[in-house]
Amino acid sequence: MSLIDFLFYIICAAAVILLAAQAVINPTAFVQITVFGLADGAMYALVALGYTMVYGIIELINFAHGDVFTLGGYISAAILGFFAINEESFSVINLVAILLVFPVVMLIMGGINITIERIAYRPLRNAPRLAPLITAIGMSFVLEGIMFLWHGPASVHFPDILPHGLGYQTTIAGVFVTFKDGFVMATAIVLVTLLAIFINRTKLGKAMRATAQDRDAAQLMGIDINRTIAATFFIGALLAGAGGMIWGLYFNNLFYNLGFRTGLVAFTSAVFGGIGNIPGAAIGGVLIGLIAAYSDSYINSKWTEVVIFGILIGVLVFRPTGLLGMRVPEK
């Protein structure tokens, strides 16, 4: 064990001890904050998966991914407008609307992301490495521009159609839990499980893993690289679209540049878990959500940003491959 590893463990231990102290002082508040952190973290995880998959396969920091996430929220809000939904109390129409809109939005976002990949990234596959990075930034501006043009700079209302109110909240030993919190976590777990099954069990999933490992060798083995990369973007956008809708259902507020910061935090989560590593991104997202919630409550919300990015730098210095660290980002 080197000195650097030793330092890393010391810092981790100190953080855990400080948190444990808080947990002992006021256990109810601690559990409550954990619930909030888990719900936020679940959403970060869904976005982080898209970053990690794309980075894993073409080493591109896809700056537009956060905006794909927000656009998913905007589009689902628009589609929900067609239903006779009831925001006051939960109705059958609400349930039908949610069940219908989820797959529709996911597919739309998948289609949009494939189009983006086809237009902005594929022609640049053999160009200098920074060229697709700039087009990614460009596409990010384009998506934000579309949303800005659509609803302006002010925040956009997302219909509050999940069961909420007195009948759908409960206090377990002083901890306030709503249906929404459970819904967000459950949906995220289902989606991540489906993704894991897809990546590990299907032929396309295998092709994606092979392409990420060695693109040329994969091509020699008869894998259609273009199709595999497009599939990666498609699946990343499925999750981001679902994430956008969940975000809307949970917070009921969206704004056009929400994806910028959410994307940055999600990318941090992906690096935190070991970029390119799919379970790592999910765990990283949840951890970042928790850290943000603890920092908001126990330190001060104004330092949360410093805490998150400080951890990012610390992880990269002490643990360059991330927490799970299976894949090494290398040119």
Binding site: G37, F251, A293, D296, N300, S301, E305
Partner: peptide
């Protein structure tokens, strides 16, 4: 008394809970 920054905060529940507690 808590502060936040627009760019970094979208969930105020932890802050509000701290007020309530």
């Amino acid at each position: 008394h808590s502060e936040y920054q627009k760019a970094t905060t979208s969930d105020w529940k932890s802050i509000l809970l701290a007020f309530k507690n």
